[in-house]
Design a protein around this nucleic acid. Sequence first.
DNA 1: AATAAATTTAATCATTTGATTAAATTTATT
DNA 2: AATAAATTTAATCAAATGATTAAATTTATT
Lengths: 204, 204
Amino acid sequence: MKCLLNESTEERIKAAAAKIFMEKGFDGTTTRDIAKEAGLNSALMNYYFRSKEKLFAGVFDEMCELFFHGLTEILSQPLSFKEKILALIDHDFKIFRENPALSNFILNELHRNPERLIDIAKKASSIRSTVLEKQFNDAVASGEIRNVDIKHILLLIPANIQFIFISKPLTMKIHNMCENDFELFLDEHINVVKEMVANYLFLK
Amino acid sequence: MKCLLNESTEERIKAAAAKIFMEKGFDGTTTRDIAKEAGLNSALMNYYFRSKEKLFAGVFDEMCELFFHGLTEILSQPLSFKEKILALIDHDFKIFRENPALSNFILNELHRNPERLIDIAKKASSIRSTVLEKQFNDAVASGEIRNVDIKHILLLIPANIQFIFISKPLTMKIHNMCENDFELFLDEHINVVKEMVANYLFLK
DNA sequence: AATAAATTTAATCATTTGATTAAATTTATT
DNA sequence: AATAAATTTAATCAAATGATTAAATTTATT
């Protein structure tokens, strides 16, 4: 074994890569940045991962997993449509609060390399094709929720959660917030979002 | 004069730069990309603008102008608070529909170079400090609109507009849309957003 | 302990990239 | 037309960057 108190070299590289890639994106990151962050010789990066591109792909997959794992779990639980929507909002909010740069990271990469859309879209589609869509149709039929294409709902929710974090630096600057102010603002805002969405979707 | 049928060289460079920078961001763009797009020798770029950074700054300023100009105009018009909010949504939607990559471009740059937050925040703050905030307070006092911090409103609106475009490739892929499908979806979605926001904010 | 295998490092390569230079060409001025 | 100024180009530079190599070091196996 070569690891002392610290984790394995491979993990250190991946952690450093995740940090830098999340902060600066693929184009803005140099392999030397990563090596420096990990406190390692930069050739090691290519010893464990074969290239910058492959290292990035590993980080990207991990981040997607982080986001989608909890999501599919929620949707497979025995909850009503309304409960699922509200749980979904809570889940999104929790994940992105813990990883404020996550949304930026994923959406930017999808923009830079649309190839990845194929994988992501598959995962995202499976969300629609779960029991959720049947529950949705039933709820519409029973007049429980507004008759609106589910596509709109599946856009509204991430929009109202993720954009908070995408625009976080701007919001903080405009309203002169420190980190703590922003956290308080977040708590309020999530309630605003939940109430607004519930108000709109649920008819009684 | 050196221009034949086409615009001036300076304008051609700026237009090419705008196109490439908007598509690939600062880090993802090379000066040779821009020169090629403009059909010019790459040294000309440094003859007219002094560096890649300065050329980018010019494009960035122009894009900000594009966004903020119409906005301040709306807010200075003699409209009610409700009318202003709805006009603001329409304006945002129009601008970003015409420039789907705009939101991404600006938010990414603010992330890459937080220095620019200073300028932008100043412009954005002036929006709050216009008559809008007084109108808002009056409308809250009269029970016309919900008593919610205006900061939340000023986040809700861009979130529900801009995120559509930030996540456009993903939405199209998930729901198997072509450009035309997406445009139709946009038309529907803007109505969803307007109704949802109005539903939440305006109490009677 | 001796040897083999795995891990780590320093040095270096080949490209790419932002920028400059000096010459060539075009346009304006006299 | 002759000259000066502005514009454009080809060639090139220096630094940065992703990647490789060969040697050094550490760890595992016999």
